[in-house]
Design a protein around this nucleic acid. Structure first.
Length: 607
RNA sequence: GCGCCCGUAGCUCAGAGGAUAGAGCAGCGGUCUUCUAAACCGCUGGUCGGUGGUUCGAUUCCACCCGGGCGCGCCA
């Protein structure tokens, strides 16, 4: 039994009661039950009486009174009282027992924070999905933090989530990138004994990849190419012919991908599935690269994989037309503003066709009942224009548009000393995710990325991120966790027995000493109130794809704990009080640890 | 021009139909003989971009306008 989401249970009971109490042919109207804005308004506030005022043509306060009386009976010892306030709100004040309940279940239950969704979904959550054309950048880090946190949050509420990274290793980007890397290395290759024919030299020199990173990557690849990858130094003279070129490109692409996966795992993400774009064409990378390089073989008819299946499917559905040698998909039939090319006049498929093929493949891999499946993509901010075409394309292929949820991960600006740090390699500034992690650490980086709403622009304050003080919210939360751990360490020194401090025995502790009428009691009731809200916070974060709700909650919870710690001593003389406070503290610690866990941030025992 | 995102405190941003609009930073002033001062306490700070509309109620929803970002390729 997980920690009860009281908000949901209460809400259901309120709806039922209203249905019984009033003559409502259409059932009770939509209403909200939300955490109360202030302690004096109780634990939950409900606007049902206000919503009923219209249909029933009665004063909302009268309706409220009637509801309050009936609910007081129905809810029994769950609530201490239900009162009507303001224009007609119903304020629910939970009983001491109901407030203590969550602490007990957090301490007692095997998995208090793993809920069962009303409608559990099988979700494929795709994020980062960078081209293997250089290291991951700061923006990729934001998407990685978002994706991995969202995956955990969705799992917590009962969905089954696969985290996936789509590797764009086929297509023109990787060819252009490889071209430029090879161009940068022509002299070096010659020096170590490669014989480079003119046509390949010419090909390499046509590279137009603008990334500044090419130069740096080249230096790093130089050694690899020469030694580990191809063993050239030992072999001696080697002809850079077509076969060797494919070898070289596929090496460059794979090595970049490998470096990206290293960064990804360092960043505490849980990507289990790497899907390679080239596998839409063929299982091996090299033949696919060959198709993209050699004009004679690029025609779609030479492709064999799911790309051609998808193409045929779209043709069958007749949503296509030919114009100037290109094949167009009539995405306007599905709400797009203009039709899109899926096969160029030179025979190469466009990203839209491969994207449709990829999503079809993903859709099939998800398996199971269509109603219970969902694909979520997290895309970079420069791709929002592709949402419509992609959804239209999927619809053309027979997948309902609401089966793909595209979330946009916004821009990131780094700031230092109040100034924007231009992300330029030339100036020696931070560009890559690894450089950022070197400077601020994984925990802080993840927190900063998850603090804002996903699509909003993010200013990343580097000065703040490196500070180890309350000004840095990530440390502030972690410190609350560490402080609680420390209370327990001291408790052991002060003669509390190990078995007294275990979860099982703390769960049995009488919590009434928490409900006193002094300052301590007030603070304790407020902490309990916040614990009650936790399941609702996670549920809301999952439903709205909004991890920032979890960060905000944890920050405010830590903001209640620190003053409490300062003002109220846990390990007091009175053993009953001390044990009750220990139980509360342990429950708090578990909530903090779980919330941080959802975000992929560590919860240290000491700092 | 069309489309998407954003306009909330000096700065960076939460809040998404409700009851006096929140937090952090910045600024000013205090607190370590007491479970970690990576902490705590106090003060200062707002016509929620504008105008209309829907509603018992709008910072939140709708329309239009203004300002900023991004996208609009047979690149991805």
């Amino acid at each position: 039994m997980p920690l009860d989401n009281l908000q949901i249970s209460l809400s259901a009971m309120i709806g039922q009661t209203a249905g019984r109490l009033f003559d409502l042919p259409d059932g009770p109207p939509a209403f909200d039950l939300s955490p109360s804005a202030e302690p004096k308004f109780g634990h939950f506030a409900c606007n049902l009486a206000l919503q009923l005022a219209g249909p029933l043509k009665k004063n909302p306060r009268q309706i409220g009174e009637a509801l309050a009386v009936e609910l007081g009976k129905v809810l029994g010892n769950l609530v201490e009282r239900v009162e009507v306030a303001g224009p007609g709100f119903l304020n629910f004040h939970l009983s001491a027992g109901a407030q203590a309940g969550p602490v007990k279940s957090i301490l007692m239950e095997e998995e208090p924070f793993r809920w069962t969704a009303e409608k559990p979904l099988k979700i494929n959550l795709e994020y980062v999905s960078a081209n293997p054309t250089g290291p991951l950048l700061v923006v990729n880090g934001r998407a990685a933090a978002l994706g991995s946190a969202l995956a955990e949050i969705l799992r917590a509420v009962g969905h089954e989530v696969t985290e996936e990274f789509y590797v764009n290793d086929a297509g023109s980007q990787v060819i252009e990138f490889s071209k430029s890397v090879i161009r940068e290395n022509l002299n070096h290759l010659q020096r170590i004994g490669w014989i480079i024919n003119d046509s390949i030299r010419e090909w390499a020199n046509s590279g137009e990849y603008h990334e500044k990173t090419v130069e740096e990557i080249s230096i790093q690849i130089e050694k690899d190419i020469a030694r580990e990858a191809l063993g050239v130094l030992e072999v001696g003279k080697i002809l850079l012919d077509e076969d060797m070129l494919l070898e070289l490109i596929s090496y460059i692409v794979s090595s970049q991908h490998f470096l990206q996966t290293k960064t990804i795992s360092r960043f505490n993400t849980n990507i289990r599935s790497y899907f390679f774009e080239h596998s839409l064409y063929e299982s091996d990378l090299k033949p696919v690269i060959r198709k993209w390089i050699l004009p004679s073989e690029i025609e779609l008819k030479n492709c064999v994989g799911s790309i051609i299946k998808t193409y045929s499917l779209l043709l069958e559905r007749r949503g296509t037309s030919n114009d100037e040698g290109a094949v167009w998909l009539k995405t306007t039939d599905y709400g797009d503003e203009k039709d899109r090319v899926i096969v160029r006049s030179n025979g190469k498929p466009t990203y839209l066709l491969t994207d449709i093929a990829y999503h079809l493949d993903k859709w099939e891999r998800l398996g199971g009942d269509e109603d219970a499946k969902l694909m979520i993509d997290i895309w970079g901010p420069d791709h929002h224009g592709h949402i419509l075409p992609t959804k239209a394309g999927l619809q053309a292929a027979g997948i309902p548009p609401d089966k793909l949820e595209v979330l946009i991960s916004g821009w990131v600006t780094l700031k230092r000393g109040g100034e924007i740090v231009s992300m330029s390699k030339r100036q020696g500034n931070i560009v890559t995710l690894d450089e950022l992690l070197d400077e601020v650490g994984v925990d802080v980086a993840r927190y900063m990325f998850l603090e804002r709403s996903p699509e909003a622009h993010l200013d990343f304050d580097l000065d703040l991120a490196v500070q180890q003080s309350s000004e840095n919210p990530a440390y502030y939360i972690q410190y609350a966790h560490a402080r609680i751990a420390s209370i327990f360490a001291v408790a052991r020194e002060e003669g509390f027995r190990e078995d007294e401090l275990g979860d099982d025995s703390l769960a049995k502790v009488d919590l009434t000493p928490l409900f006193t009428d002094d300052d301590a009691g007030e603070r304790q009731r407020e902490l309990l109130r916040q614990i009650v809200y936790y399941p609702g916070v996670v549920a809301g974060a999952a439903a709205s794809y909004a991890p920032q709700r979890v960060t905000a909650y944890l920050h405010s919870l830590a903001g209640l704990f620190h003053p409490y710690y300062k003002k109220v001593k846990v390990l007091v003389e009175d053993r009953g009080t001390a044990l009750a406070r220990l139980a509360l503290s342990r429950a708090l610690r578990k909530v903090l640890a779980h919330g941080l866990g959802l975000l992929g941030i560590s919860a240290p025992e000491s700092m």
